[in-house]
């Protein structure tokens, strides 16, 4: 992807559709001013993606946010510390199974 000119990673985000989770990579070609979205569909039995940090350094914090908010394993990365302080790291608040108002007391 980077070799074809999409050299700028704008954002990594994910959407929980209950039966599967989509991971989206928003990439951009600075020279041609073109956008592209790469979509990876993850089944619940294997919630993991390969790290893209060696290709796009910008992925660093986005991937950590993804693993904390959605519980998606990032293969090929070892992160010692949570990106967001004061978070328990065991619940995944942006999943649809986390109910706002009911599960918030789990938060430290």
């Amino acid at each position: 992807m980077k070799a074809s000119g999409f050299d700028y990673l704008k954002k990594i985000t994910a959407i929980d559709y209950n039966d599967h989770i989509d991971v989206l990579y928003l990439v951009y070609n600075i020279k041609k001013r073109e956008d592209a979205v790469i979509r990876a569909t993850l089944k619940p039995d294997d919630l993991s993606v390969e790290t893209v940090m060696r290709i796009y350094r910008a992925a660093d914090w986005y991937e950590r946010e993804l693993s904390e908010m959605f519980g998606i394993k990032i293969k090929g990365r070892r992160v010692k510390r949570l990106l967001l302080e004061l978070w328990n790291g065991a619940d995944y608040p942006l999943r649809k199974s986390f109910v706002w108002g009911k599960d918030y007391n789990k938060v430290k």
Binding site: R81, L83, L86, W87, P93, L94, W100
Partner: peptide, 16 residues
């Protein structure tokens, strides 16, 4: 840098 002291879950909150 350590961040997240002001995390209030805006994205989740906006879904509700």
């Amino acid at each position: 840098p350590h961040i997240g002291f002001l995390h209030r879950g805006v994205e989740k909150l906006m879904e509700t």
